[in-house]
Design a protein around this nucleic acid. Structure first.
Lengths: 126, 126, 126, 126
DNA sequence: GTGGTCTAGACCACC
DNA sequence: GTGGTCTAGACCACA
């Protein structure tokens, strides 16, 4: 997993968001075993406690299930995963349009500009 | 001006961003006189030092000009304003698409979903 | 037997308490043969060592007797069972009243509220 | 405030519960300023981080309001406080009756025994 | 001074 | 080995 941490915000919410995205994107499948806190922490280059905090939040979100002795797994609840995915998408879209409007564009302009960008650059690779 | 501050990040960059957006959106016109730090700080509910920091950054960006005798004003450089506006728009768009991709959508899907949202809800009002 | 285990405390004391309650409630009769550690552990979904620890404590309490040849049985000492039952009841009552007082109720109010609950809901079934 | 910590459970939930009880019992009034994390931690004899965790949970419960620079205060929402108080009382009562039933008493017997205890000992002092 | 976060290192219970 | 917790000590942003 690729980590992308921004010094200007707290780390644990960023870990939470990025893991959440990885799960809803299917990078970790429903029911799959999940890496240990220690491993993830090392991978992300953060302290174990920091990663632990993110995992605890994700458990609160219902995305991870903890078995105190045998590790964690991704929830089996595919409906929940889909629901969260759609909520995140919705928020992203609204946020995008809001920000474009705050720059002085209309929603239609914003969408058209995004369209042009995807067409030109073929941003869908990667 | 409407302030929207998030406790989980430093305040001054948020002030800077929001004022920057207000300028490029034309809420403050090129050459216009700018409110005092004192007034803005009170309006935003932040400490004067914090607002001062944001203003200093905006001067560094070239958007605000301090005139020792007559206070602050918005730059006359319309080209600069336009350039910043387009850069911000570009960043917003790329950021939007990146995040949608991290959720598992393609860039095309992302744009289509945004299109649908603007059509349905008539989000173009403000 | 129904097990009700709470991850946030050590497991063996909970096993001990719940078996103890089952014995004083008469679910296991004085002198009766007792299930094997293996079976109980499987039933409760815990490790055998954990259940073993609970059994050892219950022997220390005098409630269980190990007979090298014939396995474990519940004690014949009905007086002991009754004494423990009354002690547990006493502790429960005191604990209940203490907690209600810590919420700001008097002991009388606490009892009255409990009375109302039992009357309304007919909680005496099980 | 009197702290009563039990080694066999995690500390932070106990801190949370005890502070919660103090608030619903009116020991801290709605709208009142709340002691600093540092002071409370020292008073309870725990690390600042541990107390911080408890405070964060209480903020999540809506009982405490945090102002990042000027400290915390108890919520003004008296209805919320009352609601939580009643929920806690309800849980206490149900828990009490459940435990008495698990010992082999009926709900009525449980209530009567509690009644007798309060009458005899005048437990309402303290 | 306030709250918030992060790290490093330790210990625990369970398997 | 796993997850969970606690401590001690440090740093940051804000007022």
């Amino acid at each position: 997993m690729e980590w992308n941490l921004d010094d200007s915000r707290s780390i644990w919410p960023q870990l939470r968001e990025q893991i959440m995205r990885a799960i809803v994107a299917g990078e970790y499948k429903p029911g799959d075993a999940f890496p240990t806190v220690r491993d993830l922490a090392q991978d992300a280059g953060v302290n174990r406690n920091t990663m632990q905090r993110a995992m605890a939040e994700l458990e609160g979100d219902g995305l991870l299930i903890t078995n105190r002795t045998s590790g964690r797994k991704v929830t089996d609840d595919q409906k929940l995963i889909l629901k969260i995915k759609e909520e995140l998408a919705q928020k992203n879209i609204e946020n995008f349009i809001d920000e474009m409007q705050s720059l002085g564009y209309t929603a239609e302009e914003a969408v058209k500009m995004a369209e042009r960008v995807t067409e030109k650059k073929g941003v869908n690779d990667k």
